[in-house]
C-alpha cells in the first residue's frame, strides 16, 4: 500500500464515524523506484490531507516531512521530488491498518490491503 492510497482510504465498517485516518502498523516496507513526474505530484497534492500524510509517514519511520506544506511548493523541485518519493515509492508490503473509531484491523499481505467485511459489518445487509 502506497501512502498516497492510504491518504484516500478509510475504514468501511458500518459503525465507524469517520474511520479516518487508518493507523498503520507496518511489518515490512519496500521502497520502489518510480519515475518522478512533476505534473502528477502537483495534481495529487491537491487532494492530499497533509497532516494525515505526515502522520502516516512517521508511522512508517519517515520523519522528515515538515508539519505544514512549504508556501513556495511549486517552485521547489527537490521538495516535490521528496514528496513523490513518500507518496508513491514507499510501499507497506505487510502490516495492519487499524480503524481509529472501532479498532477493527485490516491486514496488508503481499502489498494487498484486505477490506472485506464480515456480514454484520456491512451497511446494506438485512440481519
Amino acid at each position: 500500500m502506497k501512502l498516497l492510497t492510504h491518504n484516500h482510504l478509510r475504514s468501511n465498517v458500518r459503525t465507524a464515524t469517520t474511520g479516518y485516518p487508518l493507523i498503520i502498523t507496518p511489518t515490512e516496507i519496500r521502497v520502489t523506484d518510480t519515475e518522478y513526474n512533476d505534473k502528477f505530484v502537483k495534481h495529487v497534492m491537491q487532494n492530499v490531507n497533509w497532516p494525515v500524510l505526515v502522520q502516516a509517514a512517521s508511522q512508517c519511520g519517515i520523519t522528515t516531512l515538515p508539519p505544514t506544506i512549504p508556501p513556495n511548493l511549486t517552485s521547489d523541485t527537490s521538495f516535490l521530488q521528496a514528496l513523490h518519493h513518500v507518496l508513491v515509492n514507499v510501499n507497506v508490503v505487510s502490516g495492519v491498518l487499524k480503524c481509529p473509531d472501532t479498532g477493527r484491523e485490516f491486514s496488508i499481505r503481499d502489498g494487498i490491503c484486505d477490506f472485506m467485511l464480515e456480514e454484520e459489518e456491512c451497511e446494506n445487509v438485512k440481519i
Binding site: M1, K2, L4, T5, L9, N12, T32, T34, E35, V88, N91, G111, I112, C113, D114, F115, M116, L117, C122, E123, N124
Partner: peptide
Amino acid sequence: PLPEIIRGDNSL
C-alpha cells in the same frame, strides 16, 4: 510500476 491492489467490495 506496481498497481495499488485492494480487496474490497465495489458496492461499498
